[in-house]
Design a protein around this nucleic acid. Structure first.
Lengths: 278, 278
DNA sequence: GCGCCTGATACCCACCGGGTATCAGGGCGT
DNA sequence: ACGCCCTGATACCCGGTGGGTATCAGGCGC
C-alpha cells in the first residue's frame, strides 16, 4: 500500500478546515463530487473514518483531528522542499528574513546594516514566523522567547528586555508608574484580547478577538483592551496609548531563528554578524 | 502550479540514493523509462536541474542535494501523518517506545515497571531514534543529551551520569585510573571510530567505519579503537573491554523524548511516571 | 569493432482524477 | 403536510498521465 499523496492531504485539510464539502471544493478549485470521492478513498486507504457526516453537517473524528494536526506540518515540509530547492538553484537569491509586522525597527535596521549580503525582508502576522521558516518562504526569522514556539529551530539571542503594558491613554491605569502582571490581567474593563489558535478558532474569554497587530492597536486606542509587550515595541505606540512598565513580567528575548541544521551559508554569515553587534 | 506529489519525492530520493536510474527503478518496483520521465518532469516543474547525467553516471547538483536533505524529513512527516492517524483510530494501541539497541536495561526496566499502560519497545541503531519519532513509528524515545539532536522534541530528563572510556583490555590504557578527553582522543593506535552521517557517507579520519553497536564492541575487543560512553552503558561491556573514567567528558543525560506538542495522553502519563521515579 | 551497460525516446494502454447530471435525505418555511 | 433547498453521495463519461514494452544512442572495455 503506497503512502499518502500530497493532493489527498491538501483535500483533507481543505475539508477539515471548511467542514463543508462544497465550500472546500470551490476553495480547491474543483467540483464537489470528486472531492467527496477523494476523501472516501482516503478513508478507505487509511482504514480510518476521518469525518462523521450526519444531518446538519460534517465533523472531524478523533483520528481526523490527529491527521489535521499532522498534515499541516507535512504539507509545509513539502512546500519547503520545493522552495528551498528552487532557491538553491538561483545564484542571485537574496536571504529572506521574516519578522512580524509592527516589531521594533531599530534592532532590525542594525541587523540589516551589519550584513553585507542582500536581504529581503518579509512581514507576517503575529506568530506566523515559524510557518514561514517551516514551509521555506523564509530562511531566517526574528522571533521572541518565551512567547514564540522555538522548537525545531536554532537561535541566536539578539536582545533581552523587560515588558510594558500598553493601555488606553484615557484609562485610570495610564497614570500608574508601574504594574504587576496580576494587576494587568485583572482589569475588568480591559479584558485581555484573544488570539486565534493555529486552527483558527479562538479560546473562550471576555476579551475581544483579534488577528492582527493593527486590530489590537485600534482596540487599545478605543479603550477596549490592554496588552503586554516588550519595551522596544513601543515603536508602534499610538498617541492614544500609554506604556506602563510591568515589573514582574518575564523578560522577552528577541532572537534570530532558523531551521535547525540549516546549512545556508548566508544564514550563518548573518548570524555571525548579529552575534558581533550584540 | 500545484506542488510536489509524494510519489515524485519518493522517486527522486530513490534515484538520489542509488545514483542509478535502473537500480532505483527496480528498488521502486517500476520500470526505468517511467522513472526517467518522472524525474525529467520533476526537474521541469521545479525549473531546476537536479541531476547531471554525463558519461560514467549520474550525480546530484547542488540543488539536488538541497532537495534530498529536505525530501527525507518531508516524506517522514507524511508517513507519520498516516501512521499516527491509523493509531489514533485504534483503541487498543499500545504506546510505542524506541531506544537504541544495547542501551542500559536497568533504567528502561524501571520505566516500564512504573508504567501501568501497555508499552511496546522498539530497538533501533544509534541515532535512529529521532527518525522513528519523526515518521510516526514510535510515540516516545529514550535519547541522550548532548549526543542526540533533540531539536523538535520535548524531553524529560531521566538520569545524568559521567562517561567512561571503553578500551581493549590488553591495551596499556586499560591500566589507567582515569583519563582526560584529550588523552582519549589522541591515542594513535586507537583512533576514534567514524559513524555514518544521515546521508550514509562517512566523515574523513583514521578510525574504522562503524554502523552498529555490536560492530564497535567487536572492534574494541580487537584492539582497533576505543569509545567514550555513559557509565551505565557498561552494561554491554565484554570481557575483552575495560572501562576507564574520563574525568572531563561532558555528562550525558538520558532523556525521554517525544514530538514537540504531541498530545498523546499515554505519552503524558509515561512522562509523569518517569518524573516520579527520578 | 562489437558487445554491453547506461539513460533517453517512442508508443500504447489502462487507470483514475476531474467534469456534469442526478439522486437522496434532512430541515424548515408556508 | 408538502415541497423546496441545501447538503453530500452516486452514476457515468472523458482526457491526461503514469506505467508498461520495445528500441535507440552513446561511452567504455575486451
Amino acid at each position: 500500500m503506497h503512502d499518502l499523496e500530497t493532493r489527498e492531504l491538501r483535500y483533507f485539510v481543505a475539508v477539515a478546515e471548511a467542514l463543508h464539502f462544497g465550500r472546500a471544493a470551490t476553495a480547491l478549485g474543483i467540483a464537489q463530487p470528486p472531492l467527496s470521492r477523494a476523501i472516501r478513498q482516503l478513508e478507505q486507504r487509511l482504514g480510518v473514518q476521518l469525518f462523521v457526516r450526519d444531518r446538519r453537517g460534517v465533523a472531524l473524528t478523533d483520528a481526523g483531528r490527529v491527521l489535521l494536526r499532522e498534515a499541516r506540518p507535512a504539507l509545509d515540509a513539502i512546500a519547503a522542499a520545493a522552495r528551498r530547492t528552487q532557491r538553491a538553484a538561483d545564484p542571485e537569491r537574496p536571504l529572506v528574513l521574516v519578522t512580524k509586522a509592527g516589531a521594533s525597527h531599530a534592532l532590525l535596521q542594525r541587523l540589516l546594516d551589519a550584513s553585507t549580503a542582500p536581504i529581503e525582508v518579509l512581514l507576517c502576522e503575529v506568530g506566523e514566523q515559524a510557518r514561514f521558516l517551516r514551509d521555506g518562504r523564509a530562511d531566517v526569522a526574528v522571533m521572541h522567547r518565551p512567547v514564540d514556539d522555538l522548537a525545531g529551530f536554532d537561535t541566536e539571542d539578539l536582545l533581552t528586555e523587560p515588558q510594558v503594558a500598553i493601555v488606553p491613554a484615557q484609562h485610570p491605569l495610564a497614570a500608574r508608574e508601574r504594574l504587576t502582571l496580576a494587576e494587568a490581567g485583572a482589569v475588568a474593563d480591559l479584558p485581555i484580547a484573544r488570539w486565534p489558535r493555529l486552527d483558527g478558532s479562538y479560546p473562550d474569554g471576555p476579551g475581544p478577538e483579534v488577528r492582527t497587530q493593527s486590530e489590537i492597536a485600534q482596540l487599545v486606542a478605543l479603550g477596549r483592551t490592554l496588552l503586554v509587550i516588550p519595551a522596544s515595541s513601543r515603536a508602534w505606540q499610538w498617541p492614544e496609548h500609554v506604556a506602563v512598565p510591568v515589573v514582574d513580567a518575564p523578560e522577552i528575548t528577541t532572537v534570530l531563528a532558523w531551521p535547525a541544521g540549516s546549512r545556508v551559508p548566508a544564514v550563518a554569515a548573518l548570524v555571525r554578524s548579529a552575534a558581533a553587534l550584540r
